[in-house]
Design a protein around this nucleic acid. Structure first.
Lengths: 292, 292
DNA sequence: CACAAGAGTGCGTTATGTGAACAATAGCAC
DNA sequence: GTGCTATTGTTCACATAACGCACTCTTGTG
């Protein structure tokens, strides 16, 4: 008995979990997809209590709220005693509340990640343009950034008709099968491509998802060369999305903006003909605004 | 900025770190309005490493991104060695990246607080109604929940005219001078009122802000009795806001929804006559939807 | 009332924080 | 440029705080 099967990431219990290596001495910049996926981290440079605590917070996100101590322990691979200490700490610091035996997060946890959403103010500036594009096209528009192999939505305007494409801020999807994701992946520096292409899991999401590495590489090359991406039902059946990258005035990649369109409403050809120019115009306008 | 000596609390070597380790002490944690302000927490029940780590994450939010190790140490009241271990842990877990000597958070931190935004799906359901109200009124509409004495915005639709009221999801404002805040405070159980009224800091934000406790109590009573709140330029000059509470079908308080209106565009009387009914209708519709 | 499941506790062992020393930079005066 | 100093990043040793384990206590169920 004792320990349940923790089927998620098995590494949760002793030795250093694998992730970004960060060697001592030279610091690795930007999510490195290079091949040194070791875990070679000096034990002195690691605080496992912190990692465990963060894992508890994530557990609440996975399971969607309200768990007992034991559930948290099982979910995170902790002992009950350990989970209890962590939960009480979170309560003490105001990140969680204990309601009887059920623990729950408070809105204070937003303080932990909020800066990413409001960062640099670039998205604040982009916001009106996104809204405007949304009402003009009468479709949902959103902005996303890349986090490893996921896209994370940082802003968005939903346009609601009968069918609507709903994306919440903070949502996360695999990059390989989303238009924003492909635009962002394609915009990575050339030297990143090998590692990226080697490590990215081309998970099949629908019958249309591109899962062949060679084909995926070709797709990415095309996206890079044409400067936009259209993805037709590779993430979700019935959903088409078209995206372009957003660069700041100095040329740096800020993120990507996409329009999500239910396939019943428009063909891919129509989207390219009608939506794409407006999307491109929008990012140009945003970029212009960022100058000031 | 803030590069002073880090004198910490000298006796830090034993039991229970005080409430907020960070000297800068904005935003103290721990959600007890009641008077049990003991701090009486068994050392066994507290993981200070976790609290330190979370404090580092918050430091990034306060200062808005990119800090060196030493800056983080100073900002959080840690030693450089300790800050380093925490930062390297965050990097290892993917929450941060080290770019040369500058550390920065990644979008992965959103995973920590995301569940609050997407919780229970109540806000997902409310979302279309909020959007609809926004386009109908041609004003920005948002939804918020209470976190101690702050309101935190969890959803919103911005309507952009020349002047627009811009609120980002995750934003946080003092509850006492916002319409949503007053609605939520007023909806607290009667036995909470004394502690609440005693502890809430009635910070002056504009010349209109109600800062007198007695008057504030009267205001709150009125809000409770009438079931809505209109706040005229008490948070920000030129901004008026009107809010109503949102209850779920079983009567529990879910949050509040408000319409923000630039004062140049409408008088308070007009807002009450014209906006309030639509707002009330909207929450009724949302509540109806939540039943299913 | 017995039983099971979960919550809380004491203790030996391990991992972590601290402060100080050391190393590498960055400024800065010249 | 050279040499100086102030600042920041890194390492180390040791005191101690946090861990898991095994245990007890509480609560809810038949």
């Amino acid at each position: 008995m004792a320990k349940e099967v923790v089927e998620k990431d098995e590494a949760s219990v002793d030795v250093l979990p694998p992730r970004n290596p960060a060697r001592t001495g030279l610091m690795t910049a930007s999510p490195d997809w290079s091949d040194d996926e070791n875990g070679g981290l000096n034990p002195r440079d690691y605080v496992s209590s912190l990692a465990r605590g963060l894992e508890v917070l994530r557990a609440f996100n996975r399971t969607r709220r309200k768990m007992t101590l034991s559930e948290v322990a099982a979910e995170t691979g902790n002992t009950r005693a350990g989970a209890r200490r962590i939960l009480l700490t979170l309560v003490h610091e105001g990140y969680a509340v204990a309601d009887g035996k059920l623990f729950d997060l408070t809105p204070q946890v937003l303080e932990l990640g909020y800066s990413v959403l409001s960062s640099k103010g670039a998205w604040d500036i982009a916001r009106p343009f996104i809204d405007h594009l949304s009402s003009e096209l009468r479709e949902s528009v959103s902005a996303a950034v890349l986090d490893r192999f996921d896209v994370v939505y940082v802003s968005g305007a939903q346009y609601h008709r009968v069918i609507s494409v709903g994306i919440t801020v903070g949502a996360r999807f695999p990059a390989h099968c989303t238009a924003t994701g492909r635009v962002l992946l394609a915009a990575q520096a050339p030297e990143m491509w090998p590692g990226m292409l080697q490590h990215i899991p081309l998970t099949r999401m629908t019958e249309h998802t591109v899962t062949d590495p060679t084909e995926f590489r070709r797709v990415l090359e095309q996206v890079r060369d044409q400067g936009w991406s259209l993805v037709d039902q590779e993430l979700e059946t019935g959903l088409m999305s078209i995206a372009v990258p957003l660069h700041n005035p100095s040329g740096g990649l800020v993120g990507a903006i996409n329009v999500g369109i239910p396939t019943v409403r428009m063909s891919a050809a129509t989207a390219i003909e009608y939506v794409l120019p407006k999307l491109q115009e929008t990012v140009l306008n945003i970029r212009e605004s960022l100058k000031r």
